[in-house]
Nucleic acid binder design. Structure first.
Length: 535
RNA sequence: GCGCCCGUAGCUCAGCUGGAUAGAGCAUCUGACUACGGAUCAGAAGGUCGGGAGUUCGAAUCUCUCCGGGCGCGCCA
């Protein structure tokens, strides 16, 4: 049983003994920031005093008195502090248990909270128009979406990674016209695509190729290659146009009508999104008979709901205004709008040495994601994109991220992993024979550096859970930096083998280092960043 | 005008389902290596958590309000 569960159940007993009725169902336990406040602390006396009509400090004291009679496992001291906190001090043995747990569970089994219970979640991300290369801004949504998928997979969800291809509509026609013009050596139409990439693509295009078909394939191949460089692979590439051919759009419209969600006015067909919180109703079919972008999009989401239990969309900040209407549309179709989650990623400001570099070249193209990857490398790109919450605008400085040095946290973390591998190599080369875990005397691990490493490892399952529940991969980045710092500190002060290190201590420290490796591998995998053996 | 996001150290950012003395990296200053990779470690300095009010035993965190910045508010996609 987890230490926390033991403490909780002991606290519940103490509360009952103190006459608190009913005993609160939620007993909070947290790691105090200040080590003087013990290893675990509970505010339960503060939280339940009022309802019980008690003085919090006195209630806390009663709990402490009761707990001292039969302290839970690992507990060495219990004390009352401040306004009524109950603080537990634990022996190092609780951390040694953590180490054994990490190694026993391994990369596959440690920090795998079952939050999904096999629920199928469809994560749709990137979904850029197939008429230009991905730019630096797409990188954020790409890395975020993939990491969200990895988190969900670890937490017991079935995951489909999906890419929606807007291959229908006027922008594709303009794209084909622009490509054809470049092929003829002409400038693209005024309202066409001016980007210089089209010159290169036009050169590749065979003379007899259909610019629309060929251009579409070319753009998709570009997206696939760029994402592949980041180790991002979508399971489903879903074509908007295919829904015209399959009749899915008509079906979706019929479904909306069957739900009485549609009406005719001013010569257009409208959707009653205001019934579900939208600012105004939205047009589905324009006066000229064309569909708005919304209509196929609704059909697409309707289709996704037929294939998954939950939908997770990653959209850029410039699309946040469309959230209410899409949720309203799903409500109108009878879905629970909460089963469609739309994450909004704020914008990326690309910098170089503190100077903004949002645009490139005379054509004003965005900086291509390919160029970012080429400049900083895929690992640094992914780590950096994920380093901060997607709720806030990101400053991405190419020079800083390209640096292979201290100002670049990705190398710090990867180096920690490489160091562990190096230690394991060196000890193996030195002929150290490993013994089974249950033969290792973990109680030898008493150095503050060793304990710090274990305290950090202990927090990984909670961190994974928070990251998954809050859709916050940056929490994993934070953990990986903390674990790496603990590892480097340990490395600096504690030798695994050598003069003055007993054979038993070497065994214990090797186990410790391997546990750290397990943790780092879990974290880096969730981020999609490689865990190098050497650097 | 309305909606969403943001405002925390010189810079880039964590911390936000309320907890005790608000953290990290970079930059600055000062230290530490005849051993497993110094791409390391330790220390110092650095703060009206945008302003104000409220709720609470307790607020960076919740509520309201104001200020500042970003992004949206189409029968465009």
């Amino acid at each position: 049983m987890d230490v926390r569960d033991q403490l909780r159940s002991a606290l519940a007993d103490a509360l009952a003994a103190a006459g608190v009725d009913p005993v609160p169902t939620e007993i909070s336990l947290e790691r105090p920031a200040n080590p003087e406040h013990g290893d675990w602390s509970s505010n339960v006396a503060l939280a339940s005093a009022k309802a019980a009509g008690r003085n919090p400090r006195e209630l806390g004291q009663q709990l402490v008195d009761h707990l001292r009679h039969a302290p839970p496992r690992h507990v060495t001291a219990v004390e009352i502090a401040g306004p009524g906190f109950v603080n537990f001090h634990l022996g190092d043995s609780w951390l040694h248990d953590v180490l054994a747990e990490v190694l026993t569970a391994g990369v596959r089994g440690y920090a795998c909270p079952d939050l999904g219970g096999g629920l199928h979640v469809n994560v749709e991300f990137v979904s850029a128009n197939p008429n230009k290369p991905l730019h630096a801004g797409h990188g954020r949504g790409a890395c975020y979406g993939d990491s969200i998928a990895r988190l969900r997979e670890r937490c017991g969800f079935r995951v489909t990674r999906e890419y929606y291809i807007n291959d229908r509509g006027v922008q594709m026609t303009k794209y084909a016209e622009s490509l054809a013009a470049r092929k003829r050596g002409e400038e693209p139409p005024e309202d066409g695509y001016q980007g210089e990439y089209l010159i290169a693509w036009a050169e590749e295009m065979p003379d007899d190729a259909d610019p629309l078909e060929w251009g579409y394939e070319r753009a998709l191949a570009s997206h696939r290659a760029t994402l592949g460089a980041l180790q991002i692979h979508h399971d489903v590439w879903f074509s908007e146009k295919s829904m015209v051919d399959s009749g899915a759009i008509e079906e979706s419209l019929a479904d909306l009508r069957a739900h009485d969600a549609v009406y005719e006015a001013d010569g257009a067909t409208w959707l009653r999104t205001t019934d579900h919180g939208d600012d105004k109703d939205r047009v589905l079919i324009k006066t000229d008979g064309d569909l708005t972008y919304l209509t196929p999009d609704i059909a697409y989401h309707r289709d996704k709901f037929s294939r998954a239990d939950r939908l997770f969309n990653v959209w850029g900040a410039d699309h946040h205004g469309y959230v209410p209407r899409m949720k309203a549309a799903m409500s109108l179709l009878g879905h629970d709008p909460d089963e469609l989650h739309i994450a909004i990623t704020q914008m990326v400001d690309l910098m170089r040495s503190g100077e903004p570099v949002a645009m490139s070249g005379r054509s004003g193209d965005f900086i291509a994601l390919d160029d970012v990857i080429a400049e900083v490398g895929p690992d640094a790109a992914r780590f950096t994109y994920l380093m901060q919450s997607v709720d806030s605008r990101q400053t991405f400085d190419l020079d800083e991220v390209a640096t292979q040095g201290m100002e670049n946290p990705v190398f710090y973390v990867q180096y920690a992993h490489a160091r562990i591998c190096s230690i394991l190599r060196k000890t193996a080369e030195a002929g150290v024979e490993r013994v089974a875990l249950d033969e290792v005397d973990l109680s030898l691990l008493v150095h503050e550096r060793e304990l710090e490493l274990l305290r950090s490892l202990q927090t990984l399952p909670d961190t994974v859970e928070i990251a998954c529940v809050d859709d916050a991969p940056h929490r994993i980045v934070g953990w990986s930096r903390e674990q790496a710092a603990a590892l480097h500190g340990f490395y600096h002060d504690c030798y695994v083998m050598g003069d003055g290190v007993s054979a038993e201590l070497t065994q214990a420290r090797l186990a410790l280092v391997e546990a750290s490796q397990v943790g780092l591998r879990i974290a880096l995998d969730l981020l999609g960043v490689s865990a190098p053996e050497t650097m």
